[in-house]
Design a protein around this nucleic acid. Structure first.
Lengths: 388, 388
DNA sequence: GGGGTTTACTAAAGCCTCTTTACAAACAGT
DNA sequence: ACTGTTTGTAAAGAGGCTTTAGTAAACCCC
């Protein structure tokens, strides 16, 4: 059963603070009076909540610029000049640390470092980069979000199993960074982060039920359901890549099984098909170049991969009944028409009522945005619990 | 974005009422003082909440029986002698209406009617049966839950698509029964109902993340995630049966596609395999009899079906990271050992960390319990929103 | 430039809820 | 009958929200 929250009159105040924050997140640049109208709260309550949020560093006031009829109202917005958050992405070849305002707007001060070989070195590198970005005078750093590949245990805040970037396995970067930096740190699985990015930056703003399918070297999935990220018991939810898509004679997967969806619907699946065709090993980056340039005719192979991606999309539509499915994949860079192929095939394979409920679009968000969105979400959640 | 709830001091009262209700649902038969200790609320608050809940008919007081040291405390429990709810199940051959206390204990007064051919006749039959059960003097009927097969649109409260029981397609039995009976009525998809039944009656009491896989003529799935039933945008979530499990050469499915999971992992899949073997049509009931009696050796066929059921179980474990997966299927009646086979195969196919997080057990709940659990959940939800 | 109009924000009063403290009620055991 | 124990409720104090009323800061027009 859900955790027992102590319910006191003071809770109402916190809930209203969160409501105010939400309205400003959604519409941005509002005056107190506009927030009151938008949120249904009374003006004094909004004033009080705003005062508390400004004190906490989450909001800031700017001078009125528009000329209106009556008394000019100071505009409120998510803190960007007085506060920031950091986002960390960890990848096979390099890691990145970036800062952003609380509205999520990324600054162009990203620090990129090659991914070290050991975990302590990784921590050192991240600590150094983070401290550089935190050194900005007059700007408070409220938190840091980490996007991790592979499986991530949210209860412990640890990496669990990452076939490609094993460096964080059984380590808890959030706890370790919190200790070193003295700010709130949180981890998020890569695909979950992308999902959150779409909600904060992309077309999913205000959407409560949507899915993000991340087709890269593997297949990742993030689900937003009823306004909450689907996490499961430990945060491992969303692993669609190891569904048995080819029950007999499938290729061996990194997980040890054969015929997993990842082996047929991913960049690496295309690379493997190309390798077969050319009789030599072709890696993921190379196959995309080859296909894009047209140096090798991979249309049949692309079609095959697209068909299996569509199986994944249809499964997501049937299983989660999302309002929108966002697809994030470099494959579409090869051929713009591929997206329509996937959607068409998915339509054939999904249940008609579920498909009719759903739009399929290309994702806009990045992992960096996801890491930032993760910590912003965390800070928002710490203001007050959500009401369902 | 989630609906905007007006947040007032009065909300705190309602939230605490819900808290009190939850504690009594979980432990049952407590005094006010015990509820206060259990919930962390103060005694006066509990008294007030209890008074309101008794007035609403959700709780009732019974005389103290245990002899303790101090002043004897009246025990509180969910109303059963003074109030009831009704549950309706709709099936291919017959429909059932049953009554239960608010604790969910079914009374043995079920009324079974053969499923009529048209929707108006169905409504008439249900209305008649419900009114009979509502006629009990001194007992208030607080609501009625309907368990519907196929796809159910929760936003409209309508059946959408049910291949086997098309009678409710595009009809809204909840709204229609509310009008005829004058009580709160609600619909729930069959597998979702089973999922809720498991939480109210079975081993899932107090569990926030679990899944129920219903392997019958088709494959249904109910997901409880973070204490909420996974519904998706319109309530269509959970359709796992049409995942493409056999990409080439699969059998045709009722949905129009080929190779769906349902065609290989269900009662009807076994029936089809048996038909092939015997060279004559065998239906679902018959194949279970044949297999159980040992009249025909179907061990190889059972093994094949079990293998695909395991693919479904593994997919559920990977996708939802549940603490428990409940499997509801008549197949286990054929051979007790089949359950272990499925679990073993699922272990092979699921990701080890997700599998390690999860227990697989046989489901205990019934559809009737599910329908009742559905309306009880609805009544609980109408007391106050939930805090996350 | 001054009054009127419009809009924004804040202080005060009244109501609701929760908690803590204090008190009355009911029974067992001596 | 009295004491000890436990239960349940009434009263007082604190925090929050809303409505009402009042102050502040601009624009518009003569």
């Amino acid at each position: 059963m859900s955790a027992i929250t102590t319910i006191r009159p003071a809770l109402v105040g916190k809930l209203n603070e969160r409501q105010v924050l939400r309205v400003i997140q959604l519409r941005g640049g509002l005056s107190r009076a506009e927030v009151a109208r938008e949120s249904g709260l009374s003006a004094p309550t909004v004033s009080k909540a705003v005062a508390s949020l400004i004190k906490a560093g989450l909001l800031e006031e700017t001078v009125a610029t528009e000329l209106a009829r009556g008394r000019p109202a100071p505009k409120l917005r998510l803190a960007t000049t007085s506060a920031q958050v950091l986002g960390v992405t960890i990848d096979v070849v390099h890691c990145e640390v970036v800062s952003a305002g609380l509205d999520g707007a990324l600054r162009d001060d990203a620090i990129t470092v090659p991914t070290p070989a050991t975990y302590p070195e990784l921590l050192d590198a991240l600590e150094g980069a983070a401290k550089t970005l935190m050194a900005r005078p007059g700007v408070a750093t409220l938190g840091l979000g980490v996007s991790l590949p592979g499986l991530v245990d949210y209860r412990k805040g640890c990496g669990v199993l990452s076939p490609n970037v094993a460096i964080t396995d059984n380590h808890c970067p959030a706890a370790d960074l919190t200790e070193r930096l003295g700010i709130e740190c949180t981890v998020l699985q890569e695909s979950h982060a992308l999902c959150l990015a779409e909600r904060h930056y992309g077309l999913a703003k205000g959407l409560d039920d949507f899915a993000l399918l991340d087709v890269g070297a593997g297949v990742g999935l993030g689900i937003m359901s009823g306004g909450r990220l689907l996490k499961g018991r430990s945060g491992l939810a969303g692993e669609i890549g190891h569904f048995t898509a080819v029950p007999v004679g499938g290729r061996r997967c990194g997980c040890g099984n054969t015929g997993c969806l990842e082996t047929v619907a991913s960049d690496s699946a295309l690379a493997w098909l190309a390798s077969q065709k050319l009789g030599r090993a072709v890696n993921v980056d190379e196959v995309i170049d080859l296909a894009k340039s047209g140096a090798v005719d991979l249309r049949a192979e692309l079609r095959e991969v697209a068909g299996f991606v569509a199986v994944g999309v249809a499964a997501v539509i049937n299983l989660f009944n999302p309002a929108t499915v966002f697809i994030h994949t470099p494959l579409f860079e090869i051929d713009e028409a591929l997206f329509d192929t996937v959607v068409g095939r998915a339509r054939e394979r999904a249940l008609p009522p579920s498909f009719a409920d759903c739009t399929v679009v290309r994702a806009k968000g990045s992992k960096r945005q996801g890491a930032v969105a993760g910590i912003i979400q965390h800070l928002t959640d710490s203001v007050a619990p959500e009401l369902v």
